[in-house]
């Protein structure tokens, strides 16, 4: 054995191959060894497609490097990259992730003509008056009365929900689905309600307590990782 240490460890699992890549060596060394190992261990070309999961440890791959790795693996006949997993992300990605996932508390009354926009989940401590609008990238939780317009999951998240202590909205929007209040007056209900998209792609309003069953991952912070 001339080599003192291998930078690439291959493990077979029932989902395919898992490659553990060393995160201390240089990128060039890693690529050379990866190429060698995969060529050596190449199965017969006739076999079925095997998906490869790469674990890069504490190494950060730039988008170009990631593309190179993918190209290298793909070049080996029946191998295909399933996923690339790293322990590290860039600061920008982390901030982006935080913005999109944090719950933003706002203590304010959103009055007619005012628009409140948040990237993540909105927790509004106050009312939305008729003519006022709240927009969130995630869910919307309103401790007061919703009498205006609420738009949850505005970047296309159909799982988003809208919950309010008093649900009397002019319009509800979740992702690209819209629903408006009926033209006739409905009877006052003094209970908290939530709105979500059901199986028929319609927005429905129901008792708040049902959310636990409908969206079990609602409060888990890692839900969108």
């Amino acid at each position: 054995m001339s080599k003192q240490r291998s930078y690439v460890t291959i493990k077979g699992t029932k989902d395919g191959l898992t490659l553990h890549l060393d995160d201390m060596c240089s990128y060039e060394e890693l690529m050379t060894e990866l190429d060698e190992k995969l060529t050596l261990n190449a199965a017969d070309a006739e076999g079925p497609l095997v998906s490869v999961h790469l674990k890069t440890g504490n190494r950060y791959f730039t988008p170009t490097q990631e593309e190179e790795v993918r190209a290298l693996v793909r070049g080996k006949k029946n191998l295909v990259v399933g996923s690339i997993e790293s322990n590290v992300v860039t600061k920008e990605e982390a901030y982006e992730w935080k913005r999109k996932n944090e719950i933003v508390p706002v203590a304010k009354i959103i009055r007619s003509g005012q628009v409140l926009h948040v990237e993540g989940d909105l927790l509004l401590i106050g009312d939305v008056n008729p003519g006022g609008t709240v927009i969130a990238g995630g869910n919307i939780f309103i401790l007061g009365a919703l009498r205006g317009i609420a738009h949850a999951g505005c970047y296309g998240n159909k799982e988003a929900v809208i919950a309010a202590s008093v649900m009397k909205p002019m319009q509800l929007r979740i992702s690209d689905v819209m629903n408006r209040a009926p033209d006739y007056k409905t009877e006052e209900r003094n209970e908290m309600e939530c709105a979500y998209i059901d199986d028929t792609n319609q927005i429905v309003v129901d008792r708040l307590q049902l959310l636990t069953h409908l969206r079990p991952n609602l409060t888990r912070i890692e839900r969108r990782l």
Partner: peptide, 12 residues
């Protein structure tokens, strides 16, 4: 009342 709401928002 709707217009008053709008004005209050601007005054705030």
């Amino acid at each position: 009342v709707r217009d008053a709401d709008r004005i209050i928002g601007l005054l705030e």
